[in-house]
Design a protein around this nucleic acid. Sequence first.
DNA 1: CGATCGCTTTACAACGTTGTACCAACGATG
DNA 2: CATCGTTGGTACAACGTTGTAAAGCGATCG
Lengths: 331, 331
Amino acid sequence: MATLKDVAALAGVSVKTVSNVVNGYAFVKPENRRRVEEALTATGYRPHLGARNLRRGRTGFLALVLPELVVPYFAELAGLVLGAAQEHEWNVLIEQTLGTREGERDTLASLGPHMIDGAIVSPEALQAGDFGELAPGIPVVMLGEHSVDLPIDHVGIDNVEAARVAVAHLVGLGRTRIAAIGAHPHRGTAAQRLEGYRRALAEAGLPVREELVATAVNYHRRDGAEAMSRLLAAVEPPDAVFCFNDLLAVGAVRAAAERGARVPDDVAVVGFDNTEEGGYSLPSLTTVAPDKAAIARAAVDLLRRRVDDPGRPPEHVRTPFSLVVRESTRG
Amino acid sequence: MATLKDVAALAGVSVKTVSNVVNGYAFVKPENRRRVEEALTATGYRPHLGARNLRRGRTGFLALVLPELVVPYFAELAGLVLGAAQEHEWNVLIEQTLGTREGERDTLASLGPHMIDGAIVSPEALQAGDFGELAPGIPVVMLGEHSVDLPIDHVGIDNVEAARVAVAHLVGLGRTRIAAIGAHPHRGTAAQRLEGYRRALAEAGLPVREELVATAVNYHRRDGAEAMSRLLAAVEPPDAVFCFNDLLAVGAVRAAAERGARVPDDVAVVGFDNTEEGGYSLPSLTTVAPDKAAIARAAVDLLRRRVDDPGRPPEHVRTPFSLVVRESTRG
DNA sequence: CGATCGCTTTACAACGTTGTACCAACGATG
DNA sequence: CATCGTTGGTACAACGTTGTAAAGCGATCG
């Protein structure tokens, strides 16, 4: 592989001059610049990023830390982050934590301070305080949970409001026994969506029945199906369900079908995330649609600014969302 | 951040001795080893991978090049590759090509020879000859398409046989007008699955009707839906459809429902890939289930061996598959 | 008792790049 | 004509790591 040395030899100039041309330094004699550029293409020179990193202290890598790629929301998000990062000439290192707190710890620790310029983290189990100790000095942008008290950059939608809108939609259909699937003791987003759920019920003058709030350990299809089965087996089953993500909703729809409950006639279902899958399921899912592209873009932009100026005050970016109404809540 | 120098100073030994301890060199006096290890933990030393790369010539990175993360099959595969790579102490760099030949070219070219130890590529549009020129000297393992003539390591299932089995299953249900969705002029896997389709029909003494072979530009849900709509609009619609991946099948099922065709009563549907989504769709999908974990493991193993010994003859690994029969073909 | 051997450690150089310091040529200025 | 600033170029060191060569040190052998 061609190095600066090779190119310099071919062009008849010093190594540094070639480096200057490569880096767009202004004061290079046109004649020399031409010669160097020729030599550059002739040798097919590619800078050695490891060496550059060693010298400059920047790696050109960004870590995207998320629970699981098999969860469509994260897969879609990852794709968008990849695209956004490319525009900043960043390469993306995707790390799966598998949703465990340990996984999130290990990942951040193992990446070390040298390998990445910064990280975009979608925390699931990670607690607030963990960040300071785990990623000392690593610029981090958090996704999802909105904890204003943390001195960390953050991007996300207003989860409380989004959940409220979703449940208000169910209320608007005339449903009164509205269940929630996805409560979780240690997840920030779960708490916020639950809060929005409560708020919508309160606004409608409906009571919050604890037996209609189903927890979900993970947010997979299986968990949604199990929760829905439990709910439908009750003496007074719900006439609507708000699921904290689309996967839960897909599982819930499936479980409803298996138990002979019609969606939306007997149970209306609302999901969250607007994954493509929800648009094709039978019935198609009404869902909260966060602007994922905006999230990805904002996260990368924020990280860029943080890297360029580590001292700046942390910023909280709220990205827009909308409610997409489809068959699962349309008589 | 602590460097070897810092650790050495603290332990009162030379830098190299610390390096030796870090790298597990056998001949270090126990006393010194102890002191170094203490200093190591005291300083929280983490090797600088860029520097190590520069020195060793290995980066510790592996590129996973695939069309799109939003396609569940690739998301699942990516997750598994991430896991398998971890066991080899490899970090994974995921690159999306978006299925275009240009994307695949650019990706391989931009990664350059320095950034990665090797690449696992799931080609979609890339032509056979492209590899030699694009990735000169980069160890590559190909996934999916099985082109024995290429001097490149390769992992995949027997696509022809898998397709044959899938279609034979439909034949076994007594279906006679069996359609195929997913034909594509430039995709190796498409050609092979089509071949398996033809073979199964031939074995059953059924004619191959060209009007029952639907092409799909991409392999997304939308394409499956469009193809299914076209097929069902025909004078003599099919009574079964073999889709070249699960996404196409999901789209096909949706289109069938929209046109009032019952699955499987009116049209039986078989997918390919055994994505989790297919197991929860209504009806759940009968599908060809490649052993994705085996594919991921084999690919990483193969790459490891190729990296360690660039001269070895290329190997073609066939991973197992099975047919998972579910509601979409069960009366 | 000197030579030899195995273990242990170290100094040094090098990987490819870029920042710093410095030098040289040049035209313009006083 | 001496001085100065601008422009263009180079040599050198350093980023953190590890391979190489070599040296120090006991112990063992002839």
